[in-house]
């Protein structure tokens, strides 16, 4: 038996963290309890974060930013009107994350903390250039998501810190927000490749800004900068996308695993760009 601690506020949380060094944090439990079952972890205590109301908040009170609390379940985010209206890219990813049961269980903070390159919310958050807020008893800090996630399962989270939430800049209205996940089935699937794309076009249909983020093709989500650059100033047509796709295939560094080969991932990482083609007016 190990204690399960369920603080109702951050004020209650900090002393518990101090008194239970080595305790595992649990948000939805969909990752921790699976690893516990597999014998991969054996923490002396579990601190559940679900009772801390402020971790579940979603708001746009800070001008130009949308805040997504780490404790918000995927379902809560998916159904939130602010997410639906302002972050359609993230909403598309949430809609195909796991299954309804997994979405009811899992949280944004869990997805961030697990730091899997296949985490479905991560490629959108990379494309959105979100920041991750970490809190501790003594303060708060914000890191760009790319600086927060260091590798598979590795983050910049320090002892004494928790993931507080993600801040998503609402800098502009994108012409195109597109998420696609390639999995081996239509639900309960781990991404073999995912693409989150934000494209801004000028009135003439020429790309003004392009942000691409690819999941499951490297140790962390990959932003293929050369491909993004290559799209600038060009129409979003098959020719420019094919050129960018070639660059994407060079910029990703996938591995073979039982789900797919590196070769397939590389190929499809590029191919997915072609889905962005817009018919010429």
């Amino acid at each position: 038996m190990r204690p399960v601690l369920l603080p109702a506020s951050l004020e209650e949380l900090w002393p518990l963290m101090r008194d239970h060094p080595g305790a595992a944090f649990m948000a939805g439990g969909s990752d921790l309890l699976v690893r516990l079952r597999q014998g991969l972890v054996d923490p002396p205590a579990i601190i559940g974060l679900e009772g801390i109301a402020e971790l579940g908040l979603v708001h746009d009170e800070a001008p130009g930013w949308l805040f997504l609390g780490a404790g918000a379940s995927h379902t809560a985010l998916l159904e939130h009107s602010l997410v639906q209206r302002r972050l359609p890219l993230l909403a598309q990813a949430l809609a195909v994350l796991g299954s309804p049961l997994v979405r009811n269980q899992g949280t944004l903070g869990g997805n961030l903390g697990t730091a899997s390159p296949a985490g479905d919310t991560l490629s959108p958050l990379y494309a959105l250039e979100a920041q991750v807020e970490l809190r501790s008893a003594t303060g708060s800090r914000r890191l760009a998501i790319a600086d927060f996630i260091l590798g598979p399962g590795r983050t910049a989270l320090q002892a004494g810190e928790i993931i507080y939430g993600a801040w998503v800049p609402l800098a502009q209205d994108w012409s195109l927000a597109h998420f696609e996940k390639v999995g081996l089935r239509q639900a309960l699937a781990i991404a073999v490749v995912s693409l989150a794309a934000l494209i801004s076009l000028d009135d003439g249909g020429v790309v003004r800004e392009a942000r691409l983020a690819l999941g499951s093709v490297g140790p962390t989500v990959v932003r293929p900068r050369q491909a993004e650059q290559a799209l600038l100033g060009r129409p979003l047509d098959a020719a420019s996308l094919k050129a960018a796709a070639r660059l994407v295939r060079q910029e990703v560094s996938p591995i073979d695993d039982p789900r797919a080969s590196a070769h397939y991932r590389r190929q499809v990482a590029g191919n997915l760009l072609l889905r962005l083609a817009r018919p010429a007016d």
């Binding site: 399960v4 369920l6 649990m26 939805g28 969909s30 049961l101 009811n104 269980q105």
Partner: peptide, 15 residues
């Protein structure tokens, strides 16, 4: 009222 997975819940969470 929300469908949840009881294999991924701990008793204390029901309180």
């Amino acid at each position: 009222g929300v469908p949840r997975l009881s294999c991924l819940l701990l008793a204390a969470q029901l309180a």
